[in-house]
Write a protein that binds this DNA or RNA. Structure first.
Lengths: 194, 194
DNA sequence: TATATTTCTTCACAATTGTGAAGTAGTTTC
DNA sequence: GAAACTACTTCACAATTGTGAAGAAATATA
């Protein structure tokens, strides 16, 4: 009995119940994978090979713009799915890189196997709809935050909601994620201490 | 034969093919609805009653913050679905208002009927996944734009991608949507003319 | 452990955007 | 068509954030 799968199931159960048959399919087709700090598990320009579930560890999602700057679009820790989902599903090359910020434990499934579990299982489609809706709500909130909050307010909010990110992720990554210049964020952080 | 349904079907066909049976279900359960400029078709605090498809016209989605300011989260014209989808599906009160900025032609379906068409039809679930994915991509891009572009650049981009919004929507709505102070946007627009 | 590399902080200054008020223009309503 | 209302522009000034450089601190590598 692999603990990692229990973490996956508990995460899924936040949205839908998983019948035994779907659990077994997960155990059969999701493969454990250990990645080390700095490792890029999906690269820009390539079709994403896996749908990744972070069991533990921190990851980031970034792309390089015309000026060669890395733009970080997402930072997350487990438990959580973390995939360039659209490109993965449509088998199209992604412009994003998925990289481990710390050592990570993953469970991952190949693209073809997702079609198999969709056919043989029961709840996958329902879960997909649920998690897409959930993700959509989160993204809507991020848009609102950008449109209505100052840089300082966005940082404070992140600090409250995801203190583990502040504690574990380099400032320059957080700055890019929040759309703030690293120097400015350093100053903001310094002024907050007072 | 109602032209409005052809507009709906053509819009849906951008993502999935609609078999005859699903077309008939749409014709049976989607009802035409005309709304006039300024009309609020879903109100904050209430469970959204309809899933709305804009055939023609411009609508906005907004909520009121603690200070009583209207924050506009979305502006769109037809053809397009326009609903507080999460709250509609989960039958929970939404904090958002859907309002017509111009006279609008809609096709709308009641919540209970969505369950019926889901059961009797074929492609609804697949379409839902597709359009959620599409919406997710659009929202990701909006986040990136906020994080990487200046106020002026965001306005210019909107102008390029959705010139009809610039032409048809009051400046103060556009300002709120872009997260810019109306006075600032007026100045930005003025300086762009030179 | 020493060295090299990367990240973070700090600074002065610049650029952008926000604020609130006042006036102008435009629109709606009766 | 006049009055009332709403939206837009403009202004001076304030606040926030960006920029680029230089040094300090932290981390990785040999």
């Amino acid at each position: 009995m692999n603990d990692n799968f229990e973490i996956l199931f508990n995460y899924v159960r936040l949205l839908v119940d998983i019948p035994k048959i779907d659990q077994d399919l997960c155990r059969k087709y999701f493969k454990p994978f250990s990645a080390t700090k700095g490792e890029i598990i999906e690269s820009s320009g390539k079709v994403p090979q896996y749908h990744n579930f972070i069991v533990s560890g921190f990851m980031r999602n970034f792309y390089s713009n015309e000026l060669g700057q890395e733009i970080i679009t997402d930072i997350n820790d487990g438990p959580r799915f973390f995939t360039s989902y659209n490109h993965f599903m449509h088998r199209t090359p992604s412009n994003e890189n998925l990289q481990c910020i710390t050592d990570c434990e993953l469970l991952r499934i190949k693209r073809d196997d997702v079609d198999i579990t969709a056919k043989l299982g029961i709840t996958q489609m329902e879960y997909t709809v649920q998690i897409l809706q959930q993700q959509l709500e989160k993204n809507k909130q991020r848009i609102i935050d950008h449109a209505t909050l100052s840089a300082e307010q966005r940082y404070v909010k992140l600090q409250k909601e995801y203190p583990s990110i502040i504690q574990n992720i380099p400032l320059k990554y957080i700055a890019s994620y929040l759309g703030i210049n690293p120097g400015s964020l350093s100053r903001i952080r310094n002024e907050l201490v007072k």
